[in-house]
């Protein structure tokens, strides 16, 4: 009897949608952003891979830049958002800033990993090796590991306030390091080699190449915004389901108790 009623309660909850009628993470806003992202990604891919010509010096490898620059741009934006969210959390102590910071960090790590992988692929084609201790690649690797640490702290079970404070501190400590890592790596490698090609937009880029570049940058930002909003909402719903699970367990215990006293009488 008890088990039956608790199953009924669960289905009831899913029917209504957890957290006050919000049954998914989509909304009109995200549908618009999502559609725009799809269109620009398609446009960027067509221009980047087909319509635009190969670079005079880099040949076809220039096409990797149409993926590389948007992802690194979005990743840096994500880490800035994480830093702002972390600082604001410590000031305001609201769930919003905590969820914003952690959602952005997660997506930032994803985009950064993509950046490093396509950078390495570019290196294999251009330099003949996957990895060179090139300043930007090296800085990226260090930053990626710092934010992997952020996610590791985030993944540890703790009560929401503790977890939020811990991750906010790590978010702030990490972001302060970015310019210092950058400077150190730049000086270190600067002694051995000159300017880098990857990651800088060629000033001579024009016409279809430039269009592909800008389209894919907009596409990258739209994909990032779309993912961020959805991740934020998923995080919000996760918190709510945790609360619900607890409430449900309590009410189940209460019913059990009521049933027993009923039998006793």
């Amino acid at each position: 009897m008890t088990s039956h009623s608790s199953t009924a309660a669960t289905t009831d909850l899913t029917d209504q949608g957890v957290a006050g009628g919000l049954s998914g993470t989509g909304s009109i806003g995200t549908k618009v952003i999502g559609s725009a992202a799809l269109v620009t990604v398609a446009l960027g891919a067509i221009y980047g891979l087909v319509i635009s010509g190969p670079d005079q010096k880099l040949g076809n490898t220039v096409r990797i830049i149409y993926l590389h620059v948007p992802t690194v741009l979005a990743a840096y934006l994500a880490f800035v958002i994480t830093a702002i969210g972390s600082a604001m959390y410590l000031l305001k102590r609201t769930e919003f800033w905590d969820l914003l910071a952690s959602s952005a960090a997660e997506i930032g790590v994803l985009f950064f990993a993509v950046t490093i992988i396509d950078g390495a692929l570019w290196g294999k084609v251009t330099w003949g090796v996957f990895w060179r201790w090139e300043p930007r690649l090296t800085t990226s690797a260090v930053l990626l590991l710092m934010y992997v640490g952020y996610l590791a702290i985030r993944a540890l079970p703790a009560d929401p306030r503790t977890r939020a404070t811990r991750s906010a501190i790590v978010g702030l400590v990490a972001v302060v390091n970015i310019p210092i890592v950058h400077k150190a790596v730049d000086w270190w490698r600067g002694i051995h080699q000159g300017q880098t090609v990857l990651g800088t937009v060629d000033p001579n880029m024009a016409g279809n190449q430039l269009f592909a570049m800008y389209t894919s940058m907009i596409a990258g930002l739209l994909v990032f915004a779309w993912l961020l909003i959805h991740r934020f909402r998923v995080g919000f719903l996760m918190e709510r389901t945790e609360d619900l699970a607890l409430e449900e367990a309590i009410s189940a215990r209460r019913q059990e108790n009521a049933g027993q006293t009923g039998q006793g009488a």
Partner: peptide, 20 residues
């Protein structure tokens, strides 16, 4: 396990600068 993961990337610039 967590402390080395957090500390060592953060100290990358210290290692580079101190070594050079």
């Amino acid at each position: 396990t967590l402390l080395p993961l957090l500390m060592l990337p953060l100290l990358a610039p210290v290692l580079i600068s101190a070594t050079r």
